[in-house]
Amino acid sequence: MLFIDVDGVISLFGFPPHSPPPGRFQLVDGIAHYLSATAGEHLRALSARYESVWCTGWEEKAGEHLPHALDLPTSYPHLTFARNPGRVHAHWKLDEIEAYAGARPLAWIDDAHDEECHAWASAREQAGAPTLLVTTAPADGLTAVHVATLTAWADAVPPGAA
């Protein structure tokens, strides 16, 4: 499974205004987002190896807006997050990712992995659930290097793992 954040992965920010990365602005519910020019290509390449899931505060809006904007052949399911997740000092997405994935192998692309995310991933690994965190820089988003890492990892996960 591949859990995909949007802001900082597909919708880029923090780049110098005088030298933006390749991409374009897209209005989503009246808010301008700068979409990476290569994100769609990268996600299409990864779809051959992964079951993709939107893992973003955009929730259903990702499926409503991004397949067309990124030229994706289909939409992906999305996670819905509790407005008050209740975890003290933990990343707000962890409970929903865990509930959706169970013990299945998963990779998660996000620009905001914290210590709790790494501890959670390590615990999953120790329990026999292959887990990979891929952290992006919000000004660059998902890159070819990330795609190569994700592809190599997916190819190395033993069949039938978890």
Rank of each mutant, 00 (worst) to 15 (best):
E96H: 09
H118W: 13
E64L: 14
V147P: 09
I10Q: 00
T149I: 12
V145Q: 15
V88R: 10
S19Q: 13
A90I: 14
F81Q: 07
C55D: 09
P130D: 03
E51V: 07
A161N: 10
H89I: 06
A39V: 03
L2Y: 00
Y50R: 01
D110F: 12
D29C: 13
Y76S: 00
P17Q: 02
S75I: 01
G57F: 03
D140A: 15
H78I: 01
G23K: 01
P77L: 02
R87G: 14
F13W: 13
V9S: 03
E64D: 15
A137W: 12
P138H: 10
V6S: 00
G160Q: 04
A156Q: 01
V145R: 14
P130R: 02
T136D: 07
L43A: 01
S122C: 14
D95L: 15
T151E: 13
F3S: 00
L43H: 00
Y34F: 06
K93Q: 08
V6Q: 00
A39C: 01
G63F: 08
A48G: 14
A45G: 03
T74C: 09
E59L: 04
A123K: 02
L150V: 03
C117Q: 01
L79F: 05
A137H: 11
D29A: 09
L2V: 00
L72P: 01
L150G: 02
F3L: 01
D95T: 15
G102F: 08
A107W: 07
P73T: 14
W120F: 05
A121V: 06
A37H: 01
A82W: 15
D29V: 09
D155M: 11
G102I: 07
G63L: 11
L150D: 04
A62R: 07
R87Y: 12
W108N: 11
H42E: 07
V53G: 14
A82V: 13
H118M: 15
T131Y: 06
A69K: 02
G40N: 04
A69I: 04
G160A: 02
G141L: 06
P21V: 02
N84I: 14
T56L: 05
V134K: 05
A62V: 06
E98T: 13
T80E: 11
H118P: 06
S75T: 06
G141Q: 05
H89D: 11
